[in-house]
Nucleic acid binder design. Structure first.
Lengths: 198, 198
DNA sequence: AAAGTAAGTAAATATTTATTTACTAATGAA
DNA sequence: TTCATTAGTAAATAAATATTTACTTACTTT
């Protein structure tokens, strides 16, 4: 039996992300992808059932899972509140700024119904993903350090301003002065911490 | 000369928003839109140059402009900081929660290259839109009340957690307990204010 | 080394899609 | 009223697109 050529699978994944990052999800076509990956369209269908399957698998396996790993790198649910916030901001900022496809696909996850559904099913919001962050927040709620509000509220305050800033970083990469400097990062962390602490 | 039938133009706009809200931007087709609006596909091309023109005009005229008006309703750049935050949160939450198409299209504005470009060109980020908010922030920076950081940073902290919560509101509308309650709103405003004030 | 088998290809297909063509309808100006 | 003109329609078209068909290739097993 002829063995799988893993290089081709890598090429499919890599070019899928590249096209989405550069031209958007709506401009990804199977023929364009095949040409970019230097393979026949048929080959994509050997590895994936159809286009939807391709998108979902890549979203889950190449984006969500790597994203979680990167965000939680060196983070522990036993960290104190300020230290945790700083760690999460550093990790997230570094990962997203150096992985445009990840950022773009995470944004599509908030608009495209297909990817949004995957988000929900994978329960990224509820704790299947990012469990350590939830337990860390829960611990500080119980200790009376931060307010007793739904998890979603804490999550919203914790990282969504950063996503907005990363968007600025990419959209205005021709800006004379970069937006996310170490000084800005430090001040942002202070603002998050101050806002969330009781 | 036969006069324009404004009802048909209204129908096009209304059904465009409806389809995007319910099925997503990627599932809006000209024939589907024509059928939903009960007109011939050709009629769309009498009002709009092509699909891109339709999307951009609707995004700018039906979404961005209404959004700005709604967010700034009763807001004045002379307001004190806490009062301004509360006003902006109330306005934005109320408008987006009762206008799903608006929210969905604003989200697409962050992922779709086409709409993102419009965002940039219209300078929603830089002050052509939301000028009063910028001047209000600027005034409080100069008064030494909030930090001296780039406008983008303040804007990110001001409203992006709310957009996250509105997303929760729509995605989990089958949730037993609604997420955005008056109590949550009040506490969120307190968190934003506390975080941003020096 | 020959057979068997899945991997892979080039080209075709059937469908969908944006846009146009060729026509009809309705109204204000003359 | 009749003409000129734009609004509007139904059906066609041409291009694009996801997916398949029919075939070839290359490797493992025997």
């Amino acid at each position: 039996m002829r063995p799988r050529n893993f290089d081709k699978e890598d090429a499919i994944r890599e070019m899928t992300l590249k096209i989405i990052a550069e031209e958007g999800l709506e401009n990804l076509t199977m023929q364009k992808l095949a040409k970019a990956a230097n393979i026949s369209p048929r080959t994509i269908y050997i590895k994936y059932e159809n286009k939807e399957d391709l998108l979902i698998k890549i979203f889950v396996e190449e984006i969500l899972e790597f994203y979680e790993t990167a965000v939680l790198w060196g983070f522990s649910e036993t960290m104190d509140f300020a230290g945790g916030v700083q760690k999460l901001w550093q990790n997230t900022a570094f990962y997203l700024m150096s992985n445009r496809p990840s950022f773009v696909l995470m944004q599509y996850g908030k608009s495209s119904p297909l990817l949004n559904k995957v988000f929900q099913e994978k329960n990224i919001q509820q704790g299947q993903y990012f469990g350590p962050i939830h337990r860390w927040l829960q611990r500080h709620i119980e200790a009376g350090l931060i307010r007793d509000l739904p998890m979603e509220v804490h999550r919203a305050f914790l990282l969504s301003p950063l996503l907005d800033l990363v968007n600025e970083y990419f959209e205005y990469s021709d800006r004379p002065v970069q937006i996310i400097t170490p000084k800005v990062m430090a001040e942002c962390c202070e603002m998050v911490i101050k806002g969330m602490l009781k």
